[in-house]
Simulated assay, not measured.
Amino acid sequence: MASKQELRLARLEERLRADGVLHLRQAAALLDVSEMTVRRDLARAPETFHYLGGYILPAQGERIGPYRLELESDEHAEAKDAASRRAAALVQAGDTIFVDCGTTTVHLADHLPADSPLTVVCYALNTAQRLAVRPNVRMILLGGLFHTSAQTFSGEEALRTIEHLRINHAFLSAGGVHATHGVTCSNFSEVPIKQAAMKRALRRTLVVDATKIGQVRPAYFASIDQFDEVVTQTGVTLATG
């Protein structure tokens, strides 16, 4: 006869097959136990579950595929916008911030405070277009070789510019966040800029919709513990949680 713990783990596995990812708080409510009990259960089944930044995900969660901005823009758009809205609330008046490329952090430009001066560093054309109409924003657009599929720039010129900056807060996006394989994206050309911005930033926030948790993309750029927090549509979680 299966133990109570085995029954709980089986129920979690069934829910993850349907939803792909589950917050610890949701799992505790589903199983009618404490969050500590859920974490103890997960520790007994590392081959089946990963626990990352407050989220539970299947141990086998890899997904690799091509990336085109226009194909990604509408996918989970509401969740991406909600995550960016939460992230924008972390911005302080007078900050110099770095906004990463992609279809999640582009929404950050729409939710930045409108009543205080900001300096925003970016390297994506879609983000720059939204920032250009914000009168309180001084924009630094990193130049270089233009990549049509992702609408981004890259090259030594961009990296040299970052070297001369002091960034209060870097907001990074990712195509995958995995307990074992780290934080990844689809385009290798983005990796040097992401890493340079993180190096120059006092605070680093990862902004993703929750479907990215458990996924893996081909280009690795950071480990999860290099971030101060992870922001999704459901809230802000310490990256070491």
Rank of each mutant, 00 (worst) to 15 (best):
M1G: 14
Q5C: 11
L9K: 04
L9Y: 03
L12R: 02
R15C: 10
D19F: 09
V21H: 06
V21G: 01
V21A: 07
L22N: 02
H23S: 13
R25C: 13
E35G: 11
M36Q: 15
V38A: 12
D41G: 04
D41C: 13
P46V: 09
F49G: 02
F49P: 01
L52R: 05
G54W: 00
G54Q: 01
Y55E: 02
A59M: 07
G65D: 05
G65Q: 10
L71Q: 15
H76P: 00
E78R: 13
A79T: 14
K80P: 07
D81L: 04
A82K: 12
A83Q: 06
R85E: 09
R86N: 03
R86G: 07
A88H: 11
A88K: 03
G94F: 13
G94N: 09
F98M: 06
F98W: 08
C101L: 08
T104Y: 04
H107Y: 12
L108M: 14
L108P: 01
H111P: 05
A114L: 11
D115Q: 13
S116L: 06
P117V: 12
L118Q: 05
L118K: 05
C122Y: 08
C122V: 13
C122L: 07
C122T: 11
A124V: 10
A124G: 11
N126M: 10
A128G: 01
Q129D: 14
L131H: 02
I140Y: 07
L141N: 06
T148I: 12
T152D: 04
F153N: 08
S154C: 11
G155E: 14
G155H: 03
E157C: 06
A158H: 05
L159I: 13
R160P: 02
T161G: 04
I162T: 03
H164W: 07
L165K: 06
R166W: 09
F171S: 08
L172T: 05
S173W: 08
A174M: 05
G175F: 09
V177Y: 02
H178T: 04
A179S: 03
G182K: 00
V183K: 02
T184P: 01
T184L: 01
C185Q: 10
F188R: 11
I193L: 13
A196G: 12
A201P: 02
A201T: 12
L202W: 08
R203P: 02
R204G: 03
V207M: 01
D209E: 15
G214S: 06
Q215I: 00
P218H: 09
E229D: 08
T232H: 00
G235P: 06
G241M: 05
